[in-house]
Design a protein around this nucleic acid. Sequence first.
DNA 1: TCGCGGATGAACT
DNA 2: GTTCATCCGCGAG
Length: 207
Amino acid sequence: MSAQVSTERPVGRIARSTVPQDTVTLARWLLGLVLIGKVHGVQVSGRIVETEAYLQHEPACHGFRGMTPRNRSLFLEHGRAYVYLCYGTSYMLNVSSEAAGIGSGVLLRALEPLTGIEQMRRGRTHVRPADVTRGPGRLAAAFHIDRRDDGRDLFTDSQLWIGRDSYEVADVGVSVRIGITKAVEERLRFFVAGSRFLSGPRSLNAG
DNA sequence: TCGCGGATGAACT
DNA sequence: GTTCATCCGCGAG
């Protein structure tokens, strides 16, 4: 099958009032939207093609044991960035997903690069262009996302935000989540079916 | 394409 | 001291 590749289209702001306030709904709704960032003053962007939902009531979720200094952004109202360092090497970008006080969120796992590809690859020229935003750690590295971005409002921020263009997702795929050790059976990973820019083993990206 | 092992650092128990 | 939602390079098939 031929993977559809999106072309450049004008990206606009999304009214906060239209952002879903339910974790699984938000995880699916984010697919096809565009993440915009800035690297050394240059705008970079990519289409969201893969997300995972993390619900506070399950042990795989960072909010499971309640609020701590690290995860407090997860408990803000929906649409805030929760950024943390994983394995000492990779930052993860999440979107808080429920009302204030509830520690659920959506992990952004992969983007299809749209603009600023060479900027994203700066200093990582050994990474193939198609791989530069494949995987949550590489996505954050490409956008230079770190703990300073923690807490940003991703629908009103000027440096790091989520917008929308005319692209519409045809088919959404569902699978188990990747890389976790708890609640491994939950099917809470969502992706743009057929995208060439997904992370994880091929077997998870079919159907 | 896959599976494996090491690197890595901050938060948490 | 343990945990961890990863990445990279390597070698086998």
